[in-house]
Simulated assay, not measured.
Amino acid sequence: MSTNYFDSVPPELIFLLSTSLSNASLNSFISTCHRFHEILQPELESRLTPALAKALLHWAAAAKPHIVAKLLAPPHSVCADHRQSNSQLFGPPTPLHLAVRARNLESAALLLEAGADPRQELELTCGESRQPLHLAALRSDLDMIELLLDHGAPIDSLSRPGGSATTVLHHFCTTGSLETVELLLSRGADLSVAGNRGPALGFVVHADHLPVVKYLLRNGADASVTVPLSVLLDFPPRSANLLYVAMGIPKPEIAFMRRQAGLEMQRWEGLPLDERRKQIMAHLLAHGCSKEDTMGTITMHLTALASGAGYGEEEFLQIVREMIKQAEDAIPTLVL
């Protein structure tokens, strides 16, 4: 059928056709040509009950910003933070969560300007929650992150996925995105806020990202902190300083689980010390991380650590001492 044919259809017939259509079918029908839209759009809007308008806002948030704008405005004036039940989620999302998850910047801006609260939590499973800012971080959506921060999203709020606790700064320290870390610090992110790997420096040392380690230390990160260690079973140590973390000493519980599963024991290759690890250790030592505290932790748990690394105790200590010596020797070459 041509557009000319549609233009010749009497309006009365078009109205008659619409009466037999559901709201969803009517919406699809008026999208087929400009004439149908022009005649039937008022009919569709007249059918919008408050409940239907709220449901449509959730449907439109991900991909239909023009509909979002219409639903937020009079006469509908749907609340921008309306939550709609969803049996697949423990806590229903707000339209803002849906827009952020779909990376729809235009919809998110409309919702925020209409009063959507960027602090609203999305409960994913029991005990797990994320704010819109955390969803934007998971998608590395920097434009969305800036938009949310501009509208009051709390930059240091903790997300709690899977029993962990992280801020957006922790997330990008883990991924090693120096540009984003710089952006977040310029927007006021707090280096001292602690998550499940300690403060931001703990996350980046765990992830071995040398450029971000250097940047955080230059900007006031505390190299002397003690951070929790991720342990699966009741094996020590449960915490240590960052030099210990940077050394990459294997967790004793990993060796235990390999033995329980009948797998071959793997020796820890602490030496030769690769350049990246040596540089991270050297920077930490140069900024006040204590080698004495590191050796104290190792000595206290020597039997378990040596066994988990696949060495006798004295051989293990020799490797550890040589690693620290090499890092200390590298300090004079650093540009602090």
Rank of each mutant, 00 (worst) to 15 (best):
residue 137 A to E: 03
residue 222 D to C: 14
residue 296 G to E: 14
residue 266 Q to V: 14
residue 268 W to I: 07
residue 314 E to G: 00
residue 38 E to W: 13
residue 137 A to H: 03
residue 54 K to G: 15
residue 319 I to E: 11
residue 39 I to L: 13
residue 132 P to S: 03
residue 199 P to V: 06
residue 46 S to V: 00
residue 165 A to E: 12
residue 124 L to K: 07
residue 239 S to H: 12
residue 129 S to N: 03
residue 148 L to H: 07
residue 223 A to V: 04
residue 241 N to K: 02
residue 205 V to Y: 04
residue 56 L to A: 08
residue 177 S to E: 12
residue 265 M to R: 13
residue 268 W to E: 04
residue 296 G to L: 08
residue 55 A to H: 12
residue 210 L to V: 07
residue 238 R to E: 11
residue 66 H to C: 01
residue 227 V to A: 11
residue 258 R to E: 13
residue 280 I to H: 07
residue 97 H to T: 01
residue 35 R to N: 09
residue 61 A to R: 02
residue 84 Q to W: 05
residue 218 R to A: 15
residue 259 R to D: 12
residue 34 H to A: 13
residue 106 E to F: 00
residue 177 S to V: 00
residue 17 L to W: 11
residue 248 G to H: 04
residue 62 A to P: 03
residue 67 I to T: 13
residue 308 G to K: 03
residue 332 P to H: 09
residue 71 L to E: 02
residue 16 L to F: 09
residue 96 L to G: 03
residue 302 L to N: 04
residue 40 L to K: 02
residue 43 E to K: 04
residue 318 Q to N: 11
residue 185 L to T: 08
residue 295 M to G: 00
residue 42 P to R: 05
residue 253 E to Q: 06
residue 188 G to S: 09
residue 236 P to A: 11
residue 117 D to T: 03
residue 294 T to P: 02
residue 179 E to K: 12
residue 17 L to K: 00
residue 81 D to W: 01
residue 189 A to G: 09
residue 108 A to V: 06
residue 50 P to T: 07
residue 296 G to D: 14
residue 170 H to I: 10
residue 7 D to T: 06
residue 91 G to C: 06
residue 184 L to P: 02
residue 147 L to A: 04
residue 49 T to S: 15
residue 61 A to Y: 03
residue 197 R to K: 15
residue 256 F to D: 12
residue 28 S to D: 09
residue 50 P to Y: 09
residue 5 Y to V: 15
residue 164 S to L: 10
residue 237 P to L: 07
residue 298 I to P: 01
residue 225 V to P: 04
residue 183 L to K: 05
residue 266 Q to L: 14
residue 331 I to R: 06
residue 234 D to C: 05
residue 281 M to N: 04
residue 256 F to T: 02
residue 111 L to A: 07
residue 95 P to C: 05
residue 233 L to S: 06
residue 320 V to E: 06
residue 326 Q to L: 14
residue 81 D to V: 01
residue 193 V to F: 07
residue 255 A to S: 14
residue 42 P to K: 08
residue 157 S to Q: 05
residue 161 P to M: 05
residue 115 G to I: 04
residue 44 L to F: 15
residue 48 L to M: 13
residue 295 M to R: 09
residue 33 C to S: 13
residue 61 A to L: 07
residue 84 Q to P: 00
residue 250 P to N: 12
residue 282 A to C: 10
residue 68 V to G: 03
residue 249 I to L: 13
residue 50 P to D: 06
residue 174 T to L: 09
residue 272 P to I: 09
residue 24 A to V: 14
residue 172 F to D: 02
residue 147 L to Y: 03
residue 126 C to Y: 14
residue 178 L to P: 02
